[in-house]
Simulated scan of single mutants.
Amino acid sequence: MTPDTTSAEDLLRDLVRIPSVNPREGAGDGGETAVAAYVRDWLERRGVRAESHEVLPGRSNVVAVVPGRSESAVLLESHLDTVETDGMTVGPYDAEVRGGRLFGRGACDAKGPLAAFLLALVELAAGDDPPPYTVVLAGVCDEEHAYRGVLHLVDALADRAVVGAIVGEPTGLVPAVAHKGVVRYTVRTRGRAGHSSRPEEAVNAITLMAPVVTHLAGSAPDVPPHPLLGPATRSVTRIRGGTGPNTIPGSCEADVDRRTLPGEDLDTVWRRDRDELAALGAEVDPPFTVDPALDTAADADVVTALCRALDEHGRPSEVRGMPFGTDASKLARAGIPSVVFGPGSVGDAHSAAESVELTEVELAARVVLAAVRGVGEPRCA
């Protein structure tokens, strides 16, 4: 196979120009599927077998395979969807390049990492020497909402032994082996609605919510900090209450984001918060989002291979923790040791001027290629 000459800039520009905003609970508009189809066709033109897998109506994953000397696999996984484009100060789909950076929604999170994985995969496929393990690349839908793409992928891989995974996210080219989980729930206070001209005849639910918010802001979760992640956190992220400017509200709701640490039981976290807030007179709904934390052993084969590849390329290789959640926790829960890695900074993800440095995308591709080739090699003494 002739080595591919596609540049990181050309590939990433094409990916960013395909809108793929996660529709949340709405019907898919083909955005994620359009990116999946682009990836599939791009790979197949370069001799790499790839297929689309429908996960939800109008929403698909794409999975490609490069055979190795072993049928057991190393997984390269990243996501196809992006967050919304509201408030962006750059054209979300223009894919403009300025000062060596490509701007647009998804450039950093996570089409930059996806582009790096694609470039590594086609170079791997073009080589004369097959990799030690079969390499599976997956671009998945719905990472930014309910993780249904990676859960579908886990089911699809059930019959294949997967020795490790590199999950593409913007980590600034450092290997992340731990990240926080999350439990999100709604807390509610109930009063008695009435006319605002006679507040003494009503009970203001917003006023009842005030001590709940104050308590949540002033009391940290009572768990020891994690060496790579620091403390668990709890934040009020949204408040809803009231029906009009001249009505005392009878109900108020607040959404709470509780970031969990490895080892915390998610159901126990919610039950403790429920009991704690019930003592303040509030109701707490069952969680609407639950996602586990990640805590991969630093000596897992896929981690040591990635760290060795970073060393070879003159990059820092000390393992880190990341505060945000990723698909890696779902893969790890399925028994696949997973490390998070990719170009770009999380500070640029979801931002008004989202962008990624193109040289980082190129370097990430070279590092991933070396890491995949090095999985299973003896560790240095």
Rank of each mutant, 00 (worst) to 15 (best):
T2M: 00
T6N: 09
T6P: 09
E9P: 09
R13T: 14
R13H: 00
V16E: 14
R17K: 03
I18P: 08
S20W: 03
P23C: 09
A34R: 04
W42P: 02
E44H: 04
V48T: 05
V48G: 08
H53Q: 15
R59H: 09
V66N: 01
G68P: 11
G68L: 10
R69G: 09
S70R: 02
E77K: 11
E77C: 15
D81Y: 04
V83H: 07
D86N: 01
M88Y: 05
M88C: 06
G91I: 10
Y93Q: 11
V97Q: 06
R101F: 12
F103I: 05
A110E: 12
A116E: 12
E123F: 01
L124I: 13
A126Y: 01
D129S: 10
Y133H: 13
V135Y: 10
V136L: 14
G139A: 01
D142N: 10
A146D: 08
A146T: 13
V150R: 01
D155L: 04
A156Y: 00
L157R: 01
A158M: 13
R160Q: 15
V162R: 10
V177F: 01
A178T: 08
K180T: 11
V183R: 05
R184V: 07
R188W: 01
T189W: 02
G191Q: 07
G194M: 04
G194I: 02
R198Q: 07
E200T: 07
V203C: 05
A220K: 07
D222S: 15
H226C: 02
P227R: 00
L229G: 00
P231G: 12
V236N: 06
R238P: 07
I239V: 15
I248Y: 11
P249T: 03
G250E: 04
G250R: 03
C252D: 08
E253D: 11
A254P: 00
R259P: 10
E264Q: 14
L266D: 15
R271L: 12
R272V: 13
R272I: 05
R274K: 14
E276K: 08
L277S: 00
L277M: 07
A278R: 15
L280E: 00
L280Q: 02
A282T: 08
D285E: 15
T296E: 03
T296K: 08
A298K: 06
A300T: 05
R308E: 01
A309N: 02
L310D: 01
G314R: 07
R315G: 00
S317M: 10
E318C: 00
E318A: 13
R333V: 12
R333A: 15
S338H: 09
V339D: 10
S355H: 15
V361K: 07
V372P: 07
V372W: 06
P378C: 13
C380R: 15
